[in-house]
């Protein structure tokens, strides 16, 4: 075999390994509900040695692919509330512009470590509401407020599992709008969908049923990411070869994840996934601190600290959640 041939094979293997990484990120992202990009950025930066600029660029693109892919299934079932989605997108798209322009400033000043640290913190914090979600399928009724009427937040959908039509009224539109602005900023800054924050905005602030929240958030993620992507594009944050591999991989992975999700009966398996995610979160945080020499430790110690912190965090959340379920039942 000549030299040209072997280097071509090497590059093909490199491409496929990124696709595989994308599949892994897509599966994990959809099983935990955090989205593929949240897993992809740590994966690419920590294990593939990709510069964080290109990692976030590729992730933002993959986010659009998965959002559009799964939204196509959800909108057909008429669960997605397009009105809530469009109304809140005013805030997410504005936030995405602010966030991606901030990213441009950060990278122009070579302050990459800030992105690592914020990414780690956001990843760890978004695990908490994600873990605690899913206790109630349909929220308890709240009194409609002025925004419910003005912004026409009443809706209904057919719940296949509960076998009934669920009617709901959203409240506190203004509060959700505020949270969505921050979700947009995070999305533009870190190149992720920030679905956890979007869900928080609709779940907690607007008191919408979980199915409506998840599907509407998913629909919004694509438009938010599209806003950030165009700024990333012109700034040159998108490495075409990498973005192509990542988009295909994550898309594939999220389809596989959605298929697995239906079959998973043992809820405890999900704790392993949350464990992996919190490990990645702590690693990102430490990597940022080490890059800026705020923290000087060996890489073995770095991994050890991440492992211990991850186990402690997931253990704590697991115990807290189990206790909560016992009280509830």
């Amino acid at each position: 075999m000549n030299l040209v041939m072997s280097s071509l094979l090497f590059i093909a293997a490199k491409f496929l390994s990124i696709v595989v990484g994308g599949v892994f990120a897509g599966v994990l992202g959809s099983l935990t509900g955090l989205g593929g990009a949240t897993v992809l950025v740590p994966l690419l930066t920590l294990f593939y040695g990709v510069p964080i600029i290109y990692a976030t660029g590729a992730s933002l693109i993959s986010t659009i692919a998965t959002s559009a892919g799964s939204a196509s299934a959800y909108t057909k079932q008429k669960i997605t509330n397009i009105k809530v989605g469009v109304g809140l997108e005013i805030a997410t798209t504005t936030g995405a512009i602010v966030g991606s322009l901030t990213a441009v400033e950060v990278y122009d000043h070579k302050l990459q470590w800030i992105i690592y640290v914020i990414f780690g913190l956001v990843l760890l914090m978004s695990l908490i509401p994600t873990v605690q979600r899913g206790k109630y399928e349909v929220p308890q009724d709240r009194k409609a407020d002025w925004s419910s009427k003005l912004f026409q937040l009443a809706g209904s959908y057919h719940d296949a599992r509960l076998k009934k039509q669920v009617n709901y009224v959203g409240v506190r539109w203004w509060l959700a709008e505020l949270i969505m602005f921050f979700a947009g900023v995070i999305s533009g800054l870190l190149g992720i969908g920030s679905g956890a924050l979007k869900v928080l905005g609709m779940d907690w602030a607007m008191n919408l049923p979980m199915k409506v929240t998840t599907t509407t958030s998913n629909f919004m993620i694509g438009i938010t990411a599209a806003t950030g992507s165009s700024i990333y594009w012109y700034e040159g944050y998108i490495q075409l070869f990498l973005a192509a591999a990542a988009a295909i991989g994550v898309l594939l992975g999220s389809f596989i994840g959605a298929k697995i999700l239906v079959r998973i009966t043992n809820k405890d398996i999900r704790w392993i996934f949350f464990g992996i995610l919190s490990f990645l979160g702590v690693e990102m945080l430490l990597k940022g601190l080490i890059t800026d020499r705020i923290l000087i430790i060996s890489s073995a110690l770095e991994v050890a600290i991440s492992l211990i912190a991850a186990v402690a965090m997931i253990g704590g959340l697991y115990v807290k959640n189990q206790r909560g379920e016992k009280i509830a039942s």
Partner: peptide
């Protein structure tokens, strides 16, 4: 690849236009 990525970016936008 460029055309592919921009088609992807415009895909969610087209739903806003539909709305």
């Amino acid at each position: 690849i460029t055309v592919g990525l921009w088609v992807l970016i415009f895909t969610p936008i087209s739903v806003v236009v539909l709305s």
